[in-house]
Design a protein around this nucleic acid. Sequence first.
DNA 1: CTGAAAGCGCTTACAG
DNA 2: CTGAAAGCGCTTACAG
Lengths: 334, 334
Amino acid sequence: MTRRPTILDVAALAGVSKSTVSLVLQNSTQVKAETRDAVRAAMIEIGYVYNRAAAQMRSPSAGLVGLVINDLRNPFFTEFATVLQMTLAAKGYATVIANSDEDADLQAKLVGSMIEHGVSALVVSPAYGDGGDAFDQIERAGIPAMQVLRKTDPRTGLFPFSSFDYAAGSARATRHLMNQGAQRIAFVGGLEGRAITEERKSGYLAEIKRAGAEPFSLHGRSSRGFGLDAVDQLPDDVDAAVCFNDLVALGMLSGFARIGRNLGQDFRLVGFDDIEDCAQVWPQLSSVACDIDGFARATADGLLAWMRDGVTPPPEHRAPVELIARTSSTGRMP
Amino acid sequence: MTRRPTILDVAALAGVSKSTVSLVLQNSTQVKAETRDAVRAAMIEIGYVYNRAAAQMRSPSAGLVGLVINDLRNPFFTEFATVLQMTLAAKGYATVIANSDEDADLQAKLVGSMIEHGVSALVVSPAYGDGGDAFDQIERAGIPAMQVLRKTDPRTGLFPFSSFDYAAGSARATRHLMNQGAQRIAFVGGLEGRAITEERKSGYLAEIKRAGAEPFSLHGRSSRGFGLDAVDQLPDDVDAAVCFNDLVALGMLSGFARIGRNLGQDFRLVGFDDIEDCAQVWPQLSSVACDIDGFARATADGLLAWMRDGVTPPPEHRAPVELIARTSSTGRMP
DNA sequence: CTGAAAGCGCTTACAG
DNA sequence: CTGAAAGCGCTTACAG
């Protein structure tokens, strides 16, 4: 096991100074093509590997972005993470992804570690709980950072918040169900008291109130399992539901299959997020679509503008959402 | 924007030399508790942030592991990635996760970037295609690296391969369907010619042959959409199927719901991977379970032993799999 | 238990 | 277009 070659070794072999090698490394235009090719050949011959740690020490602009996600197993967040990473990669930035697994303490550790590694910016979909620590660390380090999809720190001037217009989405879904002739509409899923639950429910509540009807909510975990059980717990007169998310709605769909109730006719259902499964189950599931790919790209662009041009994103941004009506709410086969 | 404080500033404030500060940073036992506390207090007062790049330059043991995944959107791989990251984190190693998105060129770039960042080891679930580049780079850098779940480089001495015993799984599923009275069993899904498809099919083929029966395969993308369509393309006498994976099986499940065919009675179905959805759809889906959490933990342990103690993992390892029989193949309600 | 000194591999002005 | 020199913030022997 010999020592790794450095630019000094490359310089010696190519017969130039180490400054020239460094310039070649940075694709500087001020090196003669001939010299550059000689240096490149020497690098290959000698098996040179660029030492980024050494470079980083000199110029702190690392081209590294940290992404901390509260639940990377959730397909919605996975999609966001992958598209963000790919968009940043196209602009020459590397992204390190980490999963806080809904643990605010772990989140603080991950953020700390990323700061030590010299990230030039952070994107955090935060875990709930006493996670002020993470944002305090970021503040101390003075690094641009955004809160996405969830807001846990009120300092949106410092940590701009970006998400979807969930309230408009559930209002739209509720009106749609009314138009389809639903008599009594429930809201199903979402942990009570969570900001995101309240937000998604608020549009539903507003529309129900406007119609002079009585709201009915069934709260719980955002999982298929909860949706499956929820079917048995709805009052008999409820004939439609807006779900907190698609997982709950898909669970309800299985529940109705089990008891043989005809979805789209006997009961009308709308999910939330429009994940891929919605169009691939039977009957197809109506859902409020959030363009997560577009959102991830917009987030990346906003972050780049912030890092490179100092343009701070607005404190709060809401991306529009769209209702995708399918068989589960209309009864019409595709 | 002032300069970030360094250990020199901390040392000045605490009234010690920078060596002492460095020792405190490393939790050395040879610093008096009193001195250590004074240094810690100075670090907090001054807002000191550890500069990992500078440290890394001196001692190349970065405690960083790179993980490159061919498809991070696939829940199976996401689960693997998150558990691996959490297991390594518990042992003091940071993990950088990246998604190659089935692109061998991107994979090579990601691996190159990780090597430059000084990872001490790599775990790769490789993209298919001409990706020899990535492993050649790893070889040149002389870094421990494992191929998991897919093998694209034949040098398993250099890049040990670890996966599940898929062949045993499909054999087990096929025998199970026969025991349930299935007359003609098909294999559905998986792109033809892919190593992983052939492997999962091989157990099925062996059992079919042993029974003197005629195999029937329907190949295609590993998605719900393909499974949904596959239902219409099966010969009339086929009354059971082993699927390439659960996504295909879940698609078929929707397909049978659409045509009103009773799964578990009229047709018997077994999926592969036992993802969470299997127990949460209706009817519940039988599947070949791969303990991905255990696999991820074992991979982490093997890698740690390799990095720390120089114990190279065996060239090829196969983790056992297990058949989980549910309603879709037995007809029995849970 | 603590300090002074060298050096890790680069980049960056500054000369030429 | 290229070279000599300084320095980034740490760690690591080596003294004391």
